[in-house]
């Protein structure tokens, strides 16, 4: 079983890939500039979009790729990956705060159950490294996407209404996210 991992040149990507490899998961790691080489996506058991710098709208090829993902293949977007997912679904991604804070931990309370993945709610605090986000009041959340958890008015965990596509604004692979492990295990268990 091979998972496709798209790296948007982030400095935390290899924490995420190593988490999966340590679970004996086979990963195909593709850098953002190699996306055009990807032809057939149906061979992958799941597709993961890494975190990365900048605004999701700068990553046209990832947005295109997202739109090509076959409906039956689960998707996970982390941080920038979460934002690409929401942007591709029609959401607006904007600066979260006049002074975004990177590296602070949050507890996830009031998390709705995922329609697809059992026990997905992170058990423990998680860390945020983002400057941008998608408001939980965004019209997409009354359309194609559900925001399962929010933080300060922005979506922290989002899920497609009909397809197994999940985005998380937090960094589950961080050493500052004790809740990340249970989340990633739940995702892997589903895949």
């Amino acid at each position: 079983m091979t998972l496709l991992f798209i790296d948007h040149y982030d400095s935390f990507s290899y924490n995420l890939t190593s988490w999966f490899i340590a679970k004996n998961v086979e990963l195909k790691i593709i850098s953002y500039n190699e996306i055009s080489l990807l032809k057939d996506l149906s061979q992958y058991k799941a597709i993961i979009f890494s975190p990365g710098p900048g605004h999701p709208s700068e990553y046209l090829e990832s947005i295109e790729l997202y739109k090509r993902i076959p409906e039956h293949i689960p998707f996970l977007g982390v941080c920038l990956g979460h934002q690409i997912f929401l942007l591709a679904e029609g959401g607006i991604v904007e600066q979260i705060n006049p002074i975004p804070i990177h590296g602070c931990q949050v507890e996830i309370i009031d998390c709705k159950e995922s329609k697809f993945i059992k026990n997905m709610t992170p058990k423990g605090s998680v860390v945020l490294y983002n400057s941008l986000g998608c408001k939980s009041s965004d019209p997409i959340f009354s359309n194609s996407v559900v925001s399962l958890a929010n933080e300060s008015g922005f979506s922290l965990i989002a899920e497609h209404k009909h397809l197994a596509r999940i985005g998380v604004q937090f960094h589950p692979e961080s050493f500052a996210s004790p809740g990340g492990d249970s989340f990633l295990n739940a995702f892997l268990g589903f895949v």
Partner: peptide
Amino acid sequence: KKEIYEHTLVVDLMRNDLNLVCQAGSV
């Protein structure tokens, strides 16, 4: 808090960089 946040970032960054040359799961 500024120091703790900044330090947290650096630790995750260095975990990432060690993962480039170390066995997965060993970091």
